[in-house]
Design a protein around this nucleic acid. Sequence first.
DNA 1: GATTAGTAAGACAGCGCTATCTCAAAGTCG
DNA 2: CGACTTTGAGATAGCGCTGTCTTACTAATC
Lengths: 338, 338
Amino acid sequence: MKHTPSRATGRPTLAQVAARAGVSQITASRALRSIATVDPQLAIRVHDAAKALAYVPNPAARTLASARSHSILVLVPALSNHLFIETLEAVQDVLRPRGFEVLIGNYHYRQDEEEELIRNYLSFQPCGILLTGFNRSETAAQLLTNAGVPCVYMMELRQEEGIVCVGFSQEAAGAKVADHLLSRGRRKLVFVGAQLDARVLQRRDGYQQAIARAGLSPAIEIMTPEPSSVELGGDLFNQLLAAHPDTDGIFFCNDDLAFGASFEALRKGVAIPERISVVGFNDLPGAGQMVPRLTSVRTPRATIGQQAAASLLKLLDGETPEIPALDLGFELMIRESS
Amino acid sequence: MKHTPSRATGRPTLAQVAARAGVSQITASRALRSIATVDPQLAIRVHDAAKALAYVPNPAARTLASARSHSILVLVPALSNHLFIETLEAVQDVLRPRGFEVLIGNYHYRQDEEEELIRNYLSFQPCGILLTGFNRSETAAQLLTNAGVPCVYMMELRQEEGIVCVGFSQEAAGAKVADHLLSRGRRKLVFVGAQLDARVLQRRDGYQQAIARAGLSPAIEIMTPEPSSVELGGDLFNQLLAAHPDTDGIFFCNDDLAFGASFEALRKGVAIPERISVVGFNDLPGAGQMVPRLTSVRTPRATIGQQAAASLLKLLDGETPEIPALDLGFELMIRESS
DNA sequence: GATTAGTAAGACAGCGCTATCTCAAAGTCG
DNA sequence: CGACTTTGAGATAGCGCTGTCTTACTAATC
């Protein structure tokens, strides 16, 4: 008798399931993968056998044999912004129950890091990729194309043949904020931006365009590539007050900046909204509790994650989503700060 | 001539690297894995060949052949608390450069979900697991033991043979807060807790014990199993004021609760710290910018992630960390709110 | 009733890598 | 100097699964 090979995992294998069900291994494989060409009766026998043995497929073997994993890569520019956390959670909620493994890559808003992550993670042969926005290096884009892995883009929209994306119009959101501030009689408008990724710039553009449409001179721009934070918001606010004391309306590209500014305003006795109206972006947790309660644009980040995952599943099934560029809109939450 | 099998990945394989280096496949394998028994000269030849071919190992094949992946599972109770994000980032920063794939599991503070995640992810044969705390279901613990995968526990400490953990004493942190409030002359102390996971309760215990040591009657406890949030903090604060108007010191188990309470205090004109001293926990971003600036316990969550990952790497190398239960301490950041 | 088409099940051969065993060459010792 | 250990490299045999080709059968067609 040959001894049992020591390097076996010890877990039941497909062969054992097949033996127990009295079918061939390949039939068991097909039955468990719900492939149509298996007799329903046999399929039931196989499933029963699998359950009885507590069989769990070996993903490595499956990936090796099929040259395609069941893992899905999600690339986000940051985890520190709560926004992306909600998107990730939604993505996981859709994909994990369907048996997919979700790999999370954080590229810290750096193109080179994103490229590196793509390069590394492609070696895992993911069966699909969820990406944030369209702004990436040529090489990264090329790697994705060459890999031939289905991709769905999140957050931004682009109407283009073969591109599947889920998001909302960052420009429209920026414009909406401008219109709102203008409707409140504000005329000395400012845009405060940090991080300066593509989406921040799109919001800025929409904001400025709306101001231009109203026949006013462009908003002053206070911008820094530093990562957005509460502390930075306070600093930029102080800087702004010193340089442009007559400012009467500010659009912060992210809520945390607005939070920091609000704190400084309280400290300095700058009346919000009486003297300056303040609007944030993303409606992060706490915006509605701030003093004063912060007006902000509520973005559908969870729904974006959910729908992006759903679209990717469609692509994996060989279908095309009926709406390739899905616009989920946004909502301006008008509160006390404006 | 036999046709090239269509299901090949198309990527260069180890066999090609070996051929190019003029060695056998297994020697190439050993060279690339830096196994000592390979002649340095040969090893260099192999590495050159690999570089020339842009060879990337196939993780699935590796996992299948060795019955052990290069992925490490990290289980955290939540992503919504910024605390764990920082831990995760630190873990990734240590493990990714070493070639490990980091799998993130979020169990939403639910034991059943954690158990399910462990069950699922064990099928990926992770080579190590990082866990949060010690509080989990019997079954989950059993699964981990049976799997024989090295584990490192984060956040809490336990001196026990065979347990490797990195964290700090939650009790000591709670006690420190109590001592601080007492040193400020506060006598009507309150503990406000949400989520009520094991660590919150440990902080509470340390807090109460320090109060008892000072010979005072126990702090009033306002506790709810709801998830911690800014909004909830405001609600609990209002509730507390109504029920115990003479309160003069509050310890919130997490900063977001303290944030919400501070906002409500501003709104209601309750003077912090004159009438009530407030202390938070974790020193989350923004705590130092609050109005008033929030006193909080700064927890070493990033270092915990880093050291936990380092300890796990040691375990994977067959070594034991010199300090199995690594206490990284904490720091009370005394600011305006107390 | 013979031929064709269609379908379900199986045989076979890997996917790309590593564990294990084997063997030759070099080094060690009394 | 021969027997014995050590060491480096290769041969072999899978890991557990799925793609592809084949075969056995049933149903459909004239």
